[in-house]
């Protein structure tokens, strides 16, 4: 499974249950339309850190890195390359 699919599955199972994967566009803004709220974002970051073995660590939490499925995928790819 590609990272995009893994991320999409997580977002759907946690925040959009019942949504078909095809219905969630990879560039859909998850932060601004309230899909992920303040509790959800904690879960999302913890999951990203755990699933992709990344330490989001002390770095600034740039909302752009978590805005959409696509953005999370880019962030994970770059963070892994930099590690």
């Amino acid at each position: 499974m590609s990272n995009v699919d893994t991320i999409k599955n997580f977002v759907i199972s946690e925040f959009l249950p019942g949504t078909a994967p095809a219905e969630l566009a990879v560039d859909h803004d998850l932060l601004n339309d309230g899909v992920i709220d303040s509790l959800g974002v904690l879960k999302l970051i913890a999951w990203v850190e755990d699933r992709f073995e990344l330490a989001v660590g002390d770095a600034d939490l740039d909302p752009e890195n978590f805005r959409s499925v696509e953005a999370i995928d880019h962030f994970v790819t770059h963070a892994r390359a930099a590690a």
Binding site: L31, N32, G34, S38, L61
Partner: peptide, 9 residues
Amino acid sequence: THPRGGPLG
């Protein structure tokens, strides 16, 4: 700190 940052703003 970010106008459109939602829960990360």
